[in-house]
């Protein structure tokens, strides 16, 4: 039992200490950090770095960009994937098999394989330096996982439900919106959380498509802070705190859903 408790303690420290370090360092000056990297901030709750970063960087702009890209990417991926999953559930012919294979193939191909041709395509379409470009690419990249999870869930809904609705004269759209969507909410919310984490944190596509400050999202902005602040960790961690704040708040409030959503994504993706 001793080794068990001891190893749990070590692991817990290994997770917690770096996180506390981020919070504390964001409230220190560079000098303090250098002289006493593990100590408490000498001035207590010092938010100078936070004020500084909002004054010197277009932080609010990056934040808004991240919010826009994430909201549209998550909701449109969900809408389109639900529609595809519904059709795949209703159909039982070779076309549905082909479509299912086509969509799930996307889970096998890592996004990085596509970065070169995808960059060309986005460039040709004039969608570099645009949030729309990011959103469209995000949707296409995460649709396979979403379709896979949602189809898996919708297939477990009793067939009689669809039949009863059809006899009642409901069209497919009505069955979709009034029957299937409400019944699939647990699976949809799990998928939504998975997508939220993926899109909020994504670095690769902003890195490829965005060069103009006006369209940068938080992860890309953070990466570039590294160039400006070098090893000024107090400023870098202030950026980390701001970029992670929505995620931390959401995690604390919806923790159980996060765990199930992210694991569904892992299991299926």
């Amino acid at each position: 039992m001793f080794t068990r408790r001891f190893s749990i303690l070590i692991f817990a420290l290994l997770i917690i200490v770096p996180l506390i370090m981020v919070v504390l360092t964001s409230m220190k000056t560079m000098r303090e950090t250098f002289e006493n990297p593990l100590g408490l901030p000498s001035e207590g709750l010092n938010i100078d770095n936070y004020i500084n970063i909002f004054q010197t960087q277009t932080m609010a702009g990056y934040f808004v960009n991240s919010v826009i890209v994430t909201i549209f990417s998550v909701s449109l991926t969900l809408l389109l994937s639900c529609m595809v999953a519904f059709a795949l559930t209703r159909l039982s012919n070779w076309i549905s098999v082909v479509l299912f294979v086509l969509f799930t193939l996307g889970m096998m191909v890592p996004a990085q394989v596509n970065m070169v041709p995808l960059y060309n395509l986005v460039l040709q379409l004039g969608l570099t330096n645009s949030l729309l470009g990011l959103i469209l690419v995000n949707i296409s990249v995460t649709m396979p996982v979403a379709v896979f999870i949602l189809t898996g869930f919708m297939k477990t809904l009793p067939k009689e439900l669809f039949e009863a609705s059809t006899i009642d004269g409901a069209g497919e759209w009505k069955i979709f919106t009034k029957v299937v969507i409400p019944l699939s909410l647990p699976s949809i919310s799990a998928t939504a959380i998975f997508l939220f984490v993926m899109h909020w944190n994504d670095l690769l596509y902003p890195l490829l498509f965005i060069t103009d400050n006006a369209y940068k999202t938080l992860p890309l902005a953070l990466l570039e802070f590294q160039g400006q602040y070098s090893t000024n960790y107090p400023m870098l961690f202030t950026g980390v705190m701001i970029a992670s704040a929505p995620m931390i708040i959401a995690y604390v409030l919806l923790q159980r859903y996060f765990v199930s959503g992210m694991t569904a994504g892992a299991v299926k993706g």
Binding site: L80, S81, M83, V84, F86, A87, L88, R90, L91, L99, L102, F103, G106, V109, V113, N114, V116, P117, L118, N120, L121, L136, V137, I139, S140, V141, M143, P144, V147, G171, E172, W173, F176
Partner: peptide
């Protein structure tokens, strides 16, 4: 009903343009 295929089309178009096409052109 055949109208079920309409549910696939928007997703399939986007997926084909931004995922299948780049993968093949690689």
């Amino acid at each position: 009903s055949k109208s079920i295929y309409l549910f696939v089309i928007p997703g399939l178009i986007l997926y084909s343009i931004f995922f299948l096409y780049p993968t093949i052109s690689a």
